[in-house]
């Protein structure tokens, strides 16, 4: 009897892991494809998308998705330090109003308003939250929930910064692509930058604070200073999104402090799987277009949206990305025995 060739299943990444410690030594094209495709493909897709949705309704949806993705990344970064924010709208609104205000009152050009709004807004938010940094858990969350509402009401009742009318006819972006690519590159830089940062020594300290802040203190580290740095980074991302949105719509009003800018990014991060940044991005890029597609349903839209969210949480409580990641590491191929 001729001996049959037998195969067994073998995990692809096992061999790669065994050969390497931290530096990948690549031995074959297959390994390379396996390692780079999941990183390269999303970038390529994001960079090419604006050409497919040029100048239509879906272009706006794509831009919107990027805004929410930035906010979700910002939320996820704060969450990985143990700061659960219920007020990403604060960052978004502050960035939007700073760039809008500078442009409206001081006639500053876009290339100045956006960087100033990003850094200045982040500094403003950090100082604002500095006093409540020692609050833990749900108490911190409550403060962040209240702050955007507070600002919206301040603008309305004091009739400052345009009051209920908002600031109109701000400088637009020159053409559609600059805004879109600023947003897309922002998402890519944040996504990969945060993933890198959180695995560095600095990021380990931040994750340590989330795990057990007393041990971090016993390690001689001023946790309030590190939390403040984390808020500055997260704030800068949120403010950047707000500033982009302002010039994209050439308008800024109280609605930038609305609950939408808090809830949608949070829902995206939870759906995609918090703590991975990729999850937050994937989640928002599913939820935002989905909620637009459901617009035709009218009133039923929000209900269906809720059902989808609950369903996703029940079926995949770990989040989409963690599920995909697990599967990715379990990828098998047939190996000759």
């Amino acid at each position: 009897m001729a001996e049959a060739i037998r195969y067994r299943k073998e995990r692809i990444d096992r061999g790669i892991k065994a050969r390497t410690d931290t530096i990948y030594l690549l031995s074959s094209l297959r390994d390379m494809v396996y390692l780079f495709l999941p990183r390269f493909l999303p970038i390529l897709l994001l960079l090419l998308l604006p050409f497919f949705v040029r100048g239509g309704y879906w272009e706006k949806v794509l831009f919107y998705s990027c805004m929410f993705a930035l906010l979700a990344l910002s939320w996820d970064f704060m969450a990985s330090v143990g700061l659960v924010s219920l007020g990403q709208a604060l960052f978004f609104g502050v960035g939007a109003y700073i760039s809008g205000g500078l442009n409206y009152y001081l006639k500053m050009p876009i290339f100045l308003t956006i960087p100033i709004a990003t850094l200045g807004g982040a500094l403003f938010c950090t100082l604002l939250l500095f006093s409540v940094l020692r609050l833990r858990g749900v108490y911190f969350s409550m403060v962040t929930l209240i702050l955007p509402l507070l600002f919206a009401h301040l603008i309305e009742t004091l009739d400052i910064l345009g009051g209920t009318h908002g600031l109109l006819s701000l400088t637009p972006f020159p053409g559609g692509y600059p805004a879109m690519y600023l947003a897309i590159i922002g998402v890519i830089v944040c996504l990969f930058g945060f993933r890198k940062l959180i695995s560095e020594d600095f990021g380990l300290v931040l994750r340590g604070i989330k795990d057990d802040d007393r041990v971090v203190m016993a390690g001689g580290i001023n946790i309030h200073w590190y939390k403040a740095q984390a808020i500055f980074i997260a704030g800068a991302v949120g403010c950047f999104a707000g500033a982009l949105m302002t010039h994209y719509y050439q308008f800024v009003g109280r609605s930038v402090f609305a609950l939408d800018f808090t809830v949608l990014p949070l829902a995206g991060a939870v759906l995609g799987g918090p703590g991975s940044f990729a999850g937050a991005t994937i989640g928002t890029f599913i939820l935002v277009p989905l909620s637009e597609a459901l617009r035709a349903l009218g009133g039923l839209r929000m209900a269906l949206y809720g059902v989808i969210l609950i369903g996703a949480l029940v079926v995949l409580p770990e989040g989409l990305f963690h599920y995909i990641e697990r599967r990715y590491h379990q990828f098998e191929r047939d190996a000759r025995v």
């Binding site: 380990l204 994750r207 340590g208 795990d211 390690g219 001689g220 580290i221």
Partner: peptide
Amino acid sequence: RAFHKLPAFKNLIVPLYS
């Protein structure tokens, strides 16, 4: 007390970063 999700040796990064 420890940072349970981190590898054991990564637990020491926090004081080493002080």
